[in-house]
């Protein structure tokens, strides 16, 4: 079988033989940077947990519940950040001048992260709601919007899983992402209008003051979870790139095999016709 594989031209899959060394060093630097981001993010999360659970004081009104402040808002922020990035990447893919499958991979990776963050946002929001409002779920505008967003992007991820030609799939999902994203403000406005039940942000500190250590911890949680987001997306993106490369290598093999079919029947042909 290996005899049939055409000599693989480096231009096919890499940067070409000339720039191999440069590419390798660039890759090493990227990996290092990514590792730094990951380690910093994880350290930040550990620090947030420590500060949030042990060091910061309970709130005068909300008691220990206030500790959700160190996870819920930053999760929600990351979820929206993730969807925003996914939307921009999809738009970049659809724009002919910036059409590149890398944007498609970025959109997918970011949407995956977004779904995870949304799930955590919903769970922590629900945990907050139980003691505060007396029920696990309130038809609060932000909560409802977030829930719909969650379902919307589950659909998007399901669409991404549908097998098919990478370019076809990329275009289909990019259009899907665009359509889903445009729905977000409409959902938000309609739900807000429908039921302006509560204060604007789902978890607002209300009358309690967030200052000093609490504010710093909250800020830290935003930074730490955002770094985790970047780390997560970068790894998913890299993985998707590797998968695509594997497919491309499969393509070269498939082309060679297909051509070999022709060669085989050419021999047959000559035998028949001579």
């Amino acid at each position: 079988m290996s005899a049939l594989v055409p000599p693989v031209d480096h231009g096919l899959f890499g940067e070409g033989a000339r720039s191999d060394a440069a590419a390798a060093s660039r890759q090493r630097r990227a990996q290092l940077a990514l590792r730094v981001v990951g380690v910093t993010g994880l350290l930040g999360v550990v620090l947030t947990v420590w500060l949030g659970l042990w060091v910061t004081p309970p709130d005068a009104y909300m008691g220990n519940l206030v500790r959700l402040l160190y996870i819920h808002p930053s999760m929600a922020w990351d979820a929206f950040l993730a969807y925003g990035v996914s939307f921009l990447a999809s738009a970049c893919y659809l724009w002919p001048r910036t059409r590149d499958l890398r944007f498609d991979r970025l959109a997918g990776a970011s949407a995956e992260a977004g779904v995870v963050f949304t799930a955590i946002t919903l769970v922590t929001g629900s945990l907050w709601g139980r003691p505060t409002w007396g029920t696990w779920w309130v038809w609060d505008p932000l909560l409802t919007t977030t829930a719909l967003l969650f379902v919307l992007y589950l659909g998007y991820l399901a669409l991404r899983k549908v097998p098919g030609d990478p370019e076809v799939r990329a275009k289909r999902t990019a259009v899907g992402a665009l359509v889903a994203f445009i729905d977000v403000p409409i959902v938000y406005f309609s739900v807000t209008w429908w039921k302006s039940l509560h204060q604007a942000p789902t978890i607002s500190p209300g009358k309690s003051d967030v200052h000093g250590l609490m504010a710093w911890t909250m800020l830290l949680s935003f930074v730490a979870f955002s770094l985790v987001y970047v780390w997560f997306v970068a790894h998913r993106y890299r993985l998707a790139g590797l998968q695509a490369r594997e497919e491309a290598e499969g393509l070269a093999l498939a082309l060679a095999e297909r051509r070999a079919e022709g060669a085989a029947s050419a021999v047959e042909e000559n035998e028949v016709w001579t």
């Binding site: 719909l148 379902v151 659909g155 429908w194």
Partner: peptide, 27 residues
Amino acid sequence: AVSAGTRVRETLLPLLFFPVVAPVVLA
């Protein structure tokens, strides 16, 4: 049209379709 090209059309379509039209049902 999005789901037509896929082999899981029947199951995919409602998952994609319903969340998007939630505001329509509401309004």
